[in-house]
Design a protein around this nucleic acid. Structure first.
Lengths: 347, 347
DNA sequence: TTGTATGCGTTATCAG
DNA sequence: CTGATAACGCATACAA
């Protein structure tokens, strides 16, 4: 089974290669009958054009790349689906690319750009401030999704859309304070995090401050390294927190997965959520509502964010409009894991 | 910022393009100093070779594609990591490609093959019997992982590695029977499923039969359509089961996500797991052990499976060895969701 | 050890 | 409307 090329098809059809090319690419000036005939032959022979050659030659690609950092983040699969749909509607095509935690997402994008002639790039997750300047090396317009870069100048070289992590985090911790909690721990990213982890921590500080609660640094539990927001990590960190001997009445974990792990850790110490310790998460993934107790969390409007991100990208690509920064509002979903059915309700 | 090519680098270095090419591709016959100098220039200029051109020219690619069907399956992210590591060790490179539920995985592979000159293909998940014959159209060796195709002939055109779904499913249901359960429901794939769903259902039948329990078809709950093994789906199906009025003492869901949804549905009806209804899952994903109650399940040895799959692929690629079918044993993890602490223990 | 020339499969240009 | 032909960026055979 030899590799079949456009030349073979041309020969089989008794036409020139350019005619075949025109047929495949929906060019306007071609005889409909000729086109039909060519398409038939193509189908019969299972011919698939070589994309490498295409990308090599093409000037105007319609490829939009989506770089995902952290596959395991269940948030992203939904978003990818939405993005693909939006991109499809506009007759562009999407290429998803998985970036490992230790890889540099911009570097990966750079390679993809070389390879696919991208006309647009969407980053899902990731992004430390380090890679910030290197973003400028990308020629295609960039939209950052959920990858917090708070500072945003006029004439930015990229767009960004996400929730306001500080505000949402504040919302959650403020809610916990109003529930009467004074000893609120937080399970957060690494100490050097410059991404959403930092922002959510800032929101935590702010809420405590405005509620006149002194920060107990022993209740701020940082991850050791790596950007692994897993349940196992949540379990481990919560266990350490519990064994520290500090008084804790509530825990805010900066992701739902961490929160689930924390719940189980509390359970395994013979304590109850929320009776002994209330737990709150962040993200609004499926498991949060199916867990027992169901998890209080900030629901990020992922579909809307994804939709807006692609919209902004198209605006920049087609209308050359300016890059923008858009914030979405998260929803504080109060559920069983913070329900206030203990002594607090008695005062 | 113009696109920079190998020619530019050659000019900058004052050498020919082939020398640059040799430097990049670790060719043996090149002056080490020249090579060093070239590599420096390349780095300084952030030059990235155009992969399309490379793939176009190359005869012997070292690209192995991993086609994943069902991103949301948390099982796969771990496997991908293992596979990448193994592939990296052998100095090959991996390209992951996401296949949507409605897409044909073989079609996707075919395109990738044209584009990347693949020397090997690994399929993760998916695979209905429909696409079976079309597998032969792929020129590169194929390994199916976790994508059950029970029938396996000598001289097969592909390899396959997975757990024996029938046996594992049998193991679980048999365990439930031995626990004294007689009214065991199953939450399974669509009625027309020809993949793991069917196999796991067969194991269920077999276990009931061998335990002399008549099958109550009303306890066999099929999904409606689509291959969505989500918690929401599990919740919905379990609710229907509960509202059917049938007597149920245990439920076996063919995936952990479905099982979690089922647990919550039971909870929301005011019943308890496992006291009123025992629940068992399949897969062994993280959440299974962190859920409350922790979930009895079949743990698939994903790392081992992934490792073996790549090993087999390399054997076929390099040693031209025959395709093989390898089964791994799953581990029955008995946990809280089926703990036998009610009347059963009294007889 | 190095440089030059050719071709990979496709699309774009331009002449019919 | 169609066909020949020149790029696209790179790797490689071959010549030096």
């Amino acid at each position: 089974m030899e590799t079949i090329t456009i030349k073979d098809i041309a020969k089989l059809c008794g036409v020139g290669v350019s005619t075949v090319s025109r047929a495949m690419n929906d060019h306007p000036d071609i005889n409909p009958e000729t086109k039909q005939m060519i398409m038939d032959v193509i189908r019969e022979n299972n011919y698939i054009p070589n994309n490498s050659a295409r990308n090599l030659k093409r000037t105007d690609s319609k490829n939009i790349a989506v770089l995902v950092k952290g596959v395991d983040n269940p948030l992203f699969s939904r978003m990818i689906r939405v993005i693909e749909e939006e991109i499809g509607k506009k007759k562009y095509s999407m290429v998803v690319h998985q970036v490992e935690y230790y890889e540099d997402e911009v570097e990966a994008a750079l390679e993809l750009e070389q390879e696919k002639r991208l006309c647009g790039i969407i980053f899902l997750g990731g992004f430390y401030s380090e890679s910030s300047e290197s973003l400028a090396r990308l020629k295609a317009p960039v939209v950052l999704v959920t990858s917090a870069k708070p500072q945003f100048e006029q004439n930015s070289t990229y767009s960004a859309v996400s929730v306001d992590d500080i505000r949402e985090s504040y919302k959650m911790v403020d809610y916990l304070c109003r529930q009467g909690h004074k000893d609120i721990a937080i399970i957060t990213a690494t100490m050097h995090d410059e991404s959403v982890g930092k922002l959510r921590l800032l929101g935590y500080y702010k809420a405590l401050q405005e509620n006149n609660i002194n920060v107990n640094e022993k209740l701020v539990k940082y991850m050791d390294e790596g950007e692994d927001y897993s349940m196992g990590r949540g379990y481990q960190l919560m266990t350490e927190l519990l064994e520290s001997g500090e008084k804790i009445s509530a825990v805010f974990a900066i992701s739902d997965s961490l929160a689930i792990g924390a719940c189980r850790a509390i359970h395994d110490k013979g304590l109850q959520v929320p009776e002994d310790i209330a737990v709150a998460g962040f993200d609004g993934i499926d498991i949060a509502s199916y867990y027992s107790p169901s998890l209080t969390t900030i629901i990020q409007p992922m579909e809307a964010i994804a939709k807006e991100a692609t919209q902004i990208l198209f605006n920049v690509i087609r209308d050359k409009s300016m890059h923008t920064r858009k914030f979405f509002e998260g929803e504080l979903a109060v559920r069983e894991s913070t329900e206030n059915n203990k002594e607090n309700s008695a005062d």
